[in-house]
Design a protein around this nucleic acid. Structure first.
Lengths: 351, 351
DNA sequence: CTGAAAGCGCTTACAG
DNA sequence: CTGAAAGCGCTTACAG
């Protein structure tokens, strides 16, 4: 019951105001002050006011750790991404932070950096923090499958832009649809597009998009042509990867031999690298051939030529992820929350 | 002392394993188990092993909220940024997350989104979480100056890529030096560069860089020429902003009247927008005029022409920020931790 | 409408 | 080298 308000702490910072201090200042019990913070409707207006005055005077804020300890749940949401500096994730993070702030939730961010052990460590750390839920874009690997399966039973986990298998919650782009959209658009321009894919490390969208390309081509009666890439190179430097892979291909006469009139890339960043490689070979996307990306990063509009791409509905994807985090598991009734949002064609100059 | 290990919680998830469970399983007291987790050297090897076995068997992780409550400090580091999707911040965040993970610290991220009230709310929320420290890039505004000054007394706060005044801790690029580097390089190529600046909202680096340009020009005996921009437009869409502002200027004959042979932009993103505007006026950066950016974003290499720029030493900036967060305030002896890191010229095609 | 008491899961002197 | 006890700042039945 010591008045520690002005006691210097060992680290030299000033002490902390507790609910007891507020109660004392307001002439009430700690219980009543607690009720104030937990939205009890039964407080007299007079009482409310006393508390508010005391809080202001003492600059009081409840200790979130104490609250979490007793309620067994925190206001934290964990976000685990393979790579934070990825522009697509930056956008998603921004949208999620906005929603989280409105809900009084805080985002704890972790990067797995292509390392399944770091991914596992991040997950365990989030568990120790009793996070409200986890939004995860996993690495494309089976290493943590068992861990995730077991964690799913303890806490809310939703996969973003990816999924583990049919037995998980996920929100993502409808890759089959969005890639099909682009393939058909390119075909409608009388061009048979070759496909340039990301390395395996990317995330589980990779195989889906590749499959989407193959399916759309076949459905149109065309022969798919997948440009060979070093699929096992563990990198998130997609521009550099695409540049090198395409340089190889062009150098080996791929451009000429294939007769493809365009290249469709798994992501915009791949397309940026591809454009650079094509320039080296004297090709001009949008003029003597077509080039398309996927994702619609902001920078697309400032490339020369401006990149034609597919917009991922990140607004809805982010919203759905945050929505899931708030869901009472009981509401789901044992079903999995699984949402796919369609993409939208954005035609610019490159195709 | 109830064995709650397998008790279903109200939300349907399975119960939580506590230190008591571990102690019981290991046949030891809770105190001893606690010592194990707090690195006590006095534990018998045999005892350690019993505890480790029990932890593994029960899949136990200490509750971080309980730890924080009793120690009065959390493993959380707050990062408050004006805008998360900014590529520069994405890089910084990635570097900081990596260091944080190695230190067992978690990053809680907040965006102020150009709103000083949201900035204040973020700061207060972080305070309630007893964060280990705060890394802050503030909005360019005086609104939260008093709040920050008072918060500085309670907790570690370091300004990133910015500062409040001389009485604060900060780590940042040496704007005077880095901008001077570019101005002198452009002058060495016999080009008098005009300057294209960001809107005020950006952050406190803005006025510094502008001043750096003016100073370097004057030092070289040249007349500075600052392209007029709508400085009060509250936007982080720098490409679009630069594009529009430069379009205006060119449309009014600025390019011709000024006789400037090049444009130096406050940031790379400004340069991307400027390049697009120049193209509209038939100019080709790198050929019939020079264009330079600042920051060295990854995408610079994939623009056409590749952007000449100044590299900010974000590795050292991020490292210094995290280093400060771990510092015992006593070590500083009342002095402020203030670090400026020099930039490095990166010459590519545009200048 | 308000308050006394127990307890959340842990750490930290202190005693043995 | 190990443990019993008090306490961190809060919430939640429960009583009045």
């Amino acid at each position: 019951m010591a008045e520690n308000e002005n006691v210097a702490r060992p680290d030299g910072f000033s002490g902390v105001v507790t609910m007891n201090d507020v109660a004392a200042a307001a002439g009430l019990s700690r219980t009543t002050v607690s009720k104030y913070f937990n939205g009890s409707a039964t407080l007299k207006p007079d009482t409310r006011e006393k508390i508010e005055r005391a809080c202001r005077a003492l600059n009081y804020v409840p200790d979130l750790h104490a609250v979490s300890l007793v309620t067994g749940r925190s206001n934290l949401v964990g976000v685990v991404l393979p790579f934070i500096a990825e522009p697509f994730f930056g956008k998603v993070l921004q949208l999620m932070e906005r929603e989280a702030a409105a809900l009084g939730l805080q985002i704890v961010i972790q990067a797995s950096n292509n390392d399944t052990r770091r991914e596992a460590a991040a997950l365990m750390a989030l568990r120790a923090m009793k996070v409200h839920g986890i939004i995860l874009t996993p690495i494309e690997s089976d290493d943590n499958r068992a861990l995730l399966a077991s964690l799913q039973k303890e806490m809310r986990i939703v996969f973003l832009d990816s999924f583990m298998d049919e037995n998980c919650h996920f929100v993502m782009n409808d890759n089959q649809q969005s890639i099909g959209l682009m393939v058909n658009y390119l075909l409608s321009r009388n061009v048979r597009p070759a496909y340039l894919g990301t390395p395996r490390i990317a995330n589980p969208s990779r195989p889906e998009r590749l499959a989407g390309y193959v399916a759309a081509m076949k459905a149109a009666g065309e022969t798919p042509e997948v440009i060979p890439v070093a699929v096992d190179t563990p990198t998130w430097q997609f521009e550099a990867f695409a540049y090198e892979q395409l340089l190889n291909w062009c150098g080996q006469g791929g451009l000429r031999d294939s007769g493809a009139g365009g290249i469709m890339c798994t992501t915009d960043r791949m397309a940026f690298g591809a454009a650079k490689a094509l320039r080296k070979f004297g090709r001009h996307p949008g003029k003597d051939m077509l080039l398309a990306g996927h994702d619609n990063l902001d920078i697309c509009e400032y490339m020369d030529p401006q990149l034609t791409t597919v917009h991922q509905d990140i607004e809805r994807i982010s919203h759905a992820a945050m929505h899931f985090i708030q869901l009472d598991p009981a509401e789901l009734g044992g079903r999995f929350y699984q949402q796919r949002f369609p993409g939208r064609l954005v035609i610019r100059e490159s195709a």
